[in-house]
């Protein structure tokens, strides 16, 4: 579904990604871990098309299409979804109107008619229940005055509504208390349908107690330096990242 080949990217002349290779297949759950500043969030930003990043080398293919050639909205319409680390507050745009616009723009791109008001409301209600999102937040301005947890839950709710093929969750767990973390994780788990693929970017292993990954990748200094299964996350929790760094330096000096 997603193939990343030798991806290099920089921001304001600073090299951030230095040759990422990653293959994600249908229905898989990938976790990307790594110390601060390793390039985790940058990878998410490059995939979603944030324009302050310049790709200097490499390719990204999504269902056979060149993702890097597409505007951010077209990536979304093709089925890529980024749950933001810091969701934006937009006063004056109601959550409902925002979702309706997004959904209908995606449908128009696929040649589908706009949803009838009744269908839209039905879908909204269904997804709200699925991810446990309070209906009283629906008519408010987008994320305005939401707590940190409410914002993250709104990201998962949007994910449920827009139903992408690939969801990238950028530190969705950071800043959440344990109850909110549980709700968010439950939402994600309910959306795992064997079709959708996930990339979960996290700094902490604790998220992976709730969302069980198929693969764990360690990103360090702009590259994936180790790939393993869920056990790798536990090892990182116990041992930190230093042993990996040492391993890497040994390899490089040989």
């Amino acid at each position: 579904m997603l193939t990343i080949k030798n991806l290099h990217a920089e921001v304001e002349g600073k090299k951030i990604l230095k040759g990422i290779n990653l293959e994600i297949n249908k229905g898989e759950m990938h976790a990307i871990m790594g110390p601060n500043g390793s390039g985790k969030s940058s990878l998410a930003s490059v995939l979603a098309g944030r324009d302050n990043y310049t790709v200097t080398e490499g390719e990204v293919w999504f269902n056979g299409k060149n993702l890097l050639d597409m505007a951010p909205e077209d990536r979304a319409r093709e089925g890529v979804f980024l749950a933001f680390q810091y969701p934006v507050e937009i006063p004056g745009v109601s959550n409902l109107n925002f979702l309706k616009t997004a959904l209908n723009e995606i449908r128009a791109y696929k040649g589908l008619p706009a949803l009838e008001a009744r269908e839209f409301l039905k879908l909204t209600k269904e997804k709200q229940q699925l991810v446990d999102f309070h209906s009283n937040l629906m008519n408010r301005s987008l994320n305005e005055g939401f707590s940190g947890g409410e914002k993250k839950r709104n990201e998962i709710f949007q994910l449920a509504m827009l139903d992408p093929q690939l969801a990238i969750l950028d530190e969705t767990d950071s800043g959440l208390d344990i109850d909110a973390l549980r709700i968010v994780s439950n939402g994600v788990n309910k959306l795992r349908d064997g079709e959708k693929s996930f990339v979960v970017i996290t700094h902490y292993q604790r998220l992976l107690e709730y969302i069980i990954p198929d693969f764990v990748h360690v990103l360090y200094n702009g590259r994936i330096i180790k790939t393993g299964t869920k056990e790798l996350a536990l090892e990182l929790e116990e041992r930190g990242y230093d042993w990996l760094k040492e391993e890497l330096h040994l390899k490089e000096s040989v």
Partner: peptide
């Protein structure tokens, strides 16, 4: 950041601007 957020949800640049101007003038 707001523009990117809207566009990352599939909303085209023009529709995003229209939403933002409506938001700006809503009061």
């Amino acid at each position: 950041e707001s523009m990117f957020y809207l566009r990352s949800r599939g909303i085209g640049e023009d529709a995003a601007k229209a939403l933002m101007v409506n938001a700006f003038s809503h009061d």
